[in-house]
Write a protein that binds this DNA or RNA. Structure first.
Lengths: 275, 275
DNA sequence: CACCGTAGTTTCGGCAGATGGAACCAACGA
DNA sequence: TCGTTGGTTCCATCTGCCGAAACTACGGTG
């Protein structure tokens, strides 16, 4: 079916992948160890990547850093993604309404990726998650909102192989996550209580595109004190509203028109036949 | 010296390079033609890149788009670049002072790259240049400010092989560009009069890092009507001030301390011995 | 319906070219 | 001076990449 991947390219990508927000500069030996390749091979690949402007090398320290070309390519991705464009004003409004920090989260492979963060005005706020950073599916309101809507087999794989415990509040067992999934489906939103970092809470809701598939999540997060029983309903309302509005802008038409109560229809089923 | 680049990686990078802000989605045949490779080879590379999340393929139209991984990598670049972080508040202040749109431009290979744009408040403004977009060295105030400070051999190569005429005001001949270079050195800033797009003018000034090398340019641009002889000195003052402040923040210490008039020292010479 | 043109996919044999072992440098500290 | 660590270069081996060509799928057209 799909042809065997080109090895050299795969390796080059693995090298690029080693650079993260936490470790943005690396030496040859670190990289060589990291991808488990001969120094000589690694060296050649690094030289190639540098030549291509995908890496830069600090000539003094001989250490590598991602190159400008990747910035340019990243901009193209961002720009060509109407999701972010549509989300931006909504996130801003969300921040105004809630005074908390708002996020747009999407699935990426076996984790989730923060596409956009809009800072709230509170001087004290969780700074953990930022644009371009990843979270496991099991930690945080946004990620769990996404997890809950993953197709069966993906959910299984992720829950078995890709959970990470981030605090002692993190949900990590299959049972916990299955219960959470049901909860998210029932309520239509997800709650996070210090499961990413201590003292931080969040509310998240799923975003659907035209076909009804969940492609993103919107969330707001703040410190635990501001997520009181009195506050939460207000936050939930704002987040859900933003997520629904974003879905609408992506071409999603809610079933059942104006909701008159009764069990809300689950548009997942629409997509079920497609997948 | 440097080993022969790995061909497959070079080709893969060439594919990624075809995706621009203008043409963010491409088909196999377009790509195959673009890089001049057999369809079969191209197909295999594309499949590899897709597998690596560097590309996404729209399963309906079979057309390719840059993948999320590139967004993540781009974020890392952006974050690890203190230049942008330092520049951001200065650009904002520049916009407040001038009411025009401000830019941060850096060299990338044989062209220049816009790292950051901060929009002015004028409802009518040049929308041409945006974050992640490139300009040739010979067009625009920012690019020409960079060009003027390129090392001799780079300047030669660029002026011979990488000029682009963008309007009938563009400077394209060696003579024009040499004269412009002298001008920029004499004044300490560059002026652009409709050489990028018609009705648009700009003022740019170079930014230096610790060693005195020019690593970026700051510029503001607006429509020609607002670049009157009365206005220009004010704009120049603001831009030059911002560029100097940014240089200072990057660790550059101006020679000659407080300027008392007389010929301003050219810190290029400091770097000359190094290169 | 038969025909053609265009776009994408798959196969396969040959050989350029990627690979990794090993040797070689350079810098640093003991 | 020697030992260690990290980076660079060389080269014989063999493999994994490449392109020609054949095939499928789709749509338009006479």
């Amino acid at each position: 079916m799909t042809p065997e991947p080109v090895r050299a390219v795969t390796r080059a990508a693995a090298i690029l992948d080693m650079f993260t927000l936490e470790t943005p500069v690396l030496s040859l030996t670190e990289i060589s160890r990291g991808i488990g390749l001969n120094k000589s091979t690694t060296h050649r690949l690094l030289a190639t990547l540098e030549h291509l402007d995908l890496l830069e090398v600090d000539s003094a320290t001989r250490r590598y850093r991602l190159g400008l070309k990747l910035f340019r390519l990243g901009s193209v991705v961002l720009k060509s993604m109407e999701l972010v464009a549509q989300a931006e004003p909504l996130l801003k409004r969300l921040v105004e309404q809630t005074e908390e920090t708002a996020f747009l989260i999407v699935p990426e492979k076996n984790e989730t990726l923060c596409l956009k963060r809009v800072d709230g005005c509170h001087s004290v706020r969780a700074l953990f998650l930022e644009t371009g950073k990843r979270l496991p599916y099991n930690a945080g309101a946004g990620p769990r909102a996404l997890l809950a809507h993953l197709p069966e087999e993906d959910w299984d794989r992720v829950v078995v192989h890709h959970v990470q415990r981030m605090t002692h509040h993190s949900l990590v067992t299959r049972e916990e996550l299955a219960r959470d999934k049901a909860e998210v489906h029932r309520l239509g939103y997800s709650l996070s209580r210090e499961d990413v970092s201590l003292h931080a809470c969040a509310v998240g809701a799923p975003v659907r595109e035209r076909e009804g598939r969940v492609v993103a999540a919107v969330s707001v997060s703040g410190i635990v004190q501001r997520f009181s029983p009195a506050q939460i309903p207000l936050l939930v309302a704002a987040v859900v509203q933003a997520a629904e509005e974003l879905s609408r802008r992506l071409g999603f038409v809610p079933l059942g028109g104006n909701r008159l109560g009764g069990s809300p229809p689950d548009p997942d089923e629409r997509a079920a036949g497609v997948g």
